[in-house]
Amino acid sequence: MDNNTQTEIDEQSTQFLTFIMAEEEYGVEILDVQEIRGWESCTEIPNMPAYVKGVINLRGTIVPIVDLRQKFGLENIEYSAITVVIVVKVFVDGKSKVMGLVVDAVSDVHSIAHCDINLPPQLGTDNDPSVIRGLVSIKDKMVVLLSSSLLLDLEQFKNIESLSVHNTQSPMVANG
Rank of each mutant, 00 (worst) to 15 (best):
T43M: 14
S107L: 04
P129E: 15
N47E: 14
P120Q: 06
V55A: 05
I77K: 13
R59K: 11
D108S: 12
E44F: 09
C115F: 12
D108Y: 07
F72L: 15
I117A: 01
I56W: 03
I117W: 04
A113I: 10
H110Q: 10
D67F: 03
N127Q: 15
V63L: 06
L119A: 15
I62C: 13
L68E: 01
S130C: 10
S80A: 12
V106K: 01
R69V: 03
V52D: 01
E44H: 12
L68Y: 02
P46D: 06
N47G: 04
G100F: 02
T43A: 11
N127K: 15
N47Y: 12
I86S: 04
S96Q: 14
D126N: 13
M99D: 01
D67W: 03
P46T: 07
R69Q: 08
P64W: 03
L101P: 00
S130D: 11
H114V: 10
H114I: 10
V87P: 01
G73I: 08
V109C: 09
N47R: 14
V85W: 01
T61Y: 02
N47T: 11
N57L: 07
K95H: 10
G134A: 04
T125K: 15
G100D: 00
V66S: 01
L58C: 04
N118T: 08
T43R: 13
V102D: 00
D128G: 07
G73S: 06
P64S: 07
V87F: 05
H110R: 13
Q122W: 04
D108H: 12
V98A: 09
V106I: 14
T61E: 11
N47S: 13
V84D: 07
V88R: 03
I82L: 11
V87D: 02
S111G: 07
N118P: 00
V106E: 02
I117M: 05
M48V: 08
L68V: 03
I117L: 05
G134H: 09
L119M: 11
N127I: 15
F72Q: 10
K97E: 08
S111C: 08
T43Q: 13
L74C: 02
S107A: 12
I62W: 09
D93M: 10
A113D: 11
V136G: 02
G60V: 08
G54D: 02
D116I: 05
S111R: 14
R133Y: 11
D126F: 14
T61K: 10
A113N: 14
V102I: 12
D116Y: 04
F72Y: 11
S107H: 12
